[in-house]
Design a protein around this nucleic acid. Structure first.
Lengths: 146, 146
DNA sequence: CGCATAACCTTATGCGCATAACGACTGCGG
DNA sequence: CCGCAGTCGTTATGCGCATAAGGTTATGCG
């Protein structure tokens, strides 16, 4: 692999990360949300109440991050945290009604963001793109099987 | 645009961002670097000494971030910050010899990271990929011309 | 020439993410 | 039944990033 290609690729991924996240933050700000929180709300809306460990897995971030995010979203009134009756270690996280409403708005914003992001790309690329991105994620992200 | 497609796309970008950055951090840790610092060193190595405002522009992050990163890299001995003789507001940032050596190592690691990232993708996609990513960055990132 | 505006940097503060270290609980093997 | 490894969550700490506000120097315009 070429030094120049590798640099261009990594730099492109880094820039896309920064800008996509920044744009998401702009769109989410009117809803009173910070970038990253939307994923948690969408996941809960998609699958129903879940344990924090499951959220951590689904969101691709570590348990301490989930602890803080859930605390803040609870303070904002969008989720509710209750002790799991069957496992005294765990706490289940569920959407409140305001959280459900917010999830719906986020989905609309995400259409806007996605359209904006892929503007000008050929149609056949649009088909492949999610798969490509997913492949790269798993290539670079799967836990060491130890 | 489809709600489902938009969700998948944004989620894929978010996950790729997290994992690619996390993997970069793993690779950079043995060099004593944190993710994000490598871009600054590579930029300096590519273009020579620069003003912080130029770095801010090149890296795609805000001036306060550059201030902190440069302070820490200076504390690590990899760069040197000196007042600009022709503009008393500005400070020019230059690589030290240890910084130059580090930049070379980073370039090697980036080949590793890039190869890992695109593993399994078809060759014609590899050609288009940097352009695609760049297009998405600029789509979502250009400053409002205000 | 003088003054308002703009550019460069810094400080303060806050969020999302990470790792490390810890206490609480579960559940399995002896 | 008990002890111990593994799981769930939390706290503490640190980094990269952001925005907001302020100080200093440069510059362009009347």
């Amino acid at each position: 692999m070429d030094l120049e290609y590798a640099g261009a690729l990594n730099q492109a991924i880094r820039l896309l990360s920064l800008r996509h996240r920044a744009r998401a933050a702009q769109l989410l700000a009117p809803l009173g949300l910070h970038a990253g929180q939307e994923a948690l709300l969408l996941e809960l809306d998609r699958t129903g109440p879940r344990i924090q460990a499951q959220l951590s897995e689904a969101l691709g971030c570590e348990p301490p991050s989930v602890t803080l995010m859930t605390r803040k979203l609870e303070a904002s009134g969008h989720i509710k945290r209750t002790p799991d009756p069957t496992d005294k270690r765990a706490t289940v996280v569920a959407l409140t009604s305001s959280g459900k409403a917010l999830a719906e708005q986020i989905r609309q914003l995400w259409v806007t963001l996605a359209e904006e992001t892929v503007r000008g790309l050929p149609a056949d690329m649009l088909e492949q793109l999610p798969g490509i991105l997913h492949t790269m994620s798993t290539n670079v992200g799967d836990k060491p099987p130890a």
